[in-house]
Design a binder for these strands. Structure first.
Length: 209
DNA sequence: CGCTCGATATTCT
DNA sequence: GAATATCGAGCGA
C-alpha cells in the first residue's frame, strides 16, 4: 500500500493520546502519520510519512533528558501542554523535533521523532535535502527535509489547522525496543522504539545510517 | 564498509 | 572549558 496524497486523512490524534507515560506514547507513535503542511505558490503542499523510530525522554527519572535539570529557556515547551512540538538546536548545526507527552503525575517529557518513512511529498523533501537521498532517517534529516525549525517550537499538533499534525495510520505489527543513541547518561534505558513491520505490505528492510 | 573529525549554539561544570 | 537527543565529508580497506 502506498499513499499518493494525504488529502483524505483521518482526524489528527487528540490531546489524551499524549497524556500517558512518555515511553508508552513513544511506542504508540510508531505507524502514525506525521504531516507537515508547507506553504507553496498556489496552495499547501503536504509532506508526510509513517513514524518508524522514536525515543522517550522523561524528567526527574531520566538524566539524559533536557528537562532533568529543570526549566530552562530551551526546554520550556517540555514543561508545557502535551501534544506540542518541541524543537531544539543541537551541535551548533541541526534541529530535532519532539512531541511533548507525559502522564498527569509528571511535569515534563517528550518523544523524539527519529525516523519517518515518506509517503507524500518525496520530491519536495529531496529538494530540501539536496545532498543526500536519505530523506528522513535521523532526527536532523527529518527537520531539514520537512523544513521544521525553532519557529515551530510549541506548535500544538493536536489542532487540525496546525502546520504540523499527527494522524492515525495503519498501525504496526512488530517493533523492537533498544537503548537510546547519541547520549552518555542513562544509556541503559530501553526507550528507543523502531518499527520493523507494518500491517500493510509496506516493507522496511532496515533504517539506513 | 568502518573510522575519524569538523561544525558550533546552548547548557553545564 | 567541556559536553551535547547530529550529520556528512574524507579517508583507508
Amino acid at each position: 500500500m502506498t499513499i499518493e496524497s494525504l488529502s483524505h486523512m483521518p482526524a489528527c490524534l487528540g490531546r489524551t493520546f499524549y497524556e500517558r507515560d512518555t515511553a508508552e506514547v513513544a511506542r504508540s507513535l510508531l505507524g502514525k502519520i506525521f504531516v507537515r503542511k508547507l506553504a507553496v505558490p498556489g496552495g499547501i503542499l503536504k509532506l508526510g510519512g509513517y513514524i518508524i523510530e522514536t525515543e522517550a525522554y522523561g524528567y526527574l527519572d531520566d538524566p539524559a533528558s533536557h528537562a532533568f535539570n529543570g526549566l530552562r529557556p530551551r526546554n520550556s515547551v517540555m514543561f508545557g501542554n502535551v501534544g506540542c512540538l518541541y524543537v531544539f538546536f543541537v551541535y551548533g548545526k541541526h534541529f530535532c523535533a519532539n512531541v511533548t507527552a507525559r502522564n498527569r503525575d509528571s511535569e515534563a517529557g517528550a518523544v523524539l521523532i527519529r525516523s519517518i518513512l515518506p509517503l507524500a511529498g518525496q520530491g519536495k523533501m529531496t529538494k530540501m535535502r539536496r545532498y543526500s537521498k536519505n530523506l528522513s532517517f535521523g532526527p536532523g534529516r527529518i527537520t531539514q527535509a520537512m523544513s521544521i525549525t525553532p519557529a515551530h517550537n510549541g506548535l500544538d499538533v493536536t489542532q487540525e489547522a496546525s502546520l504540523i499534525t499527527i494522524h492515525q495510520g495503519q498501525g504496526i505489527v512488530d517493533f523492537v525496543t533498544s537503548k537510546r543513541v547519541g547520549i552518555s547518561r542513562a544509556v541503559d534505558r530501553p526507550w528507543r522504539y523502531t518499527a520493523t513491520k507494518f500491517t500493510s505490505d509496506l516493507k522496511i528492510e532496515s533504517i539506513p545510517r
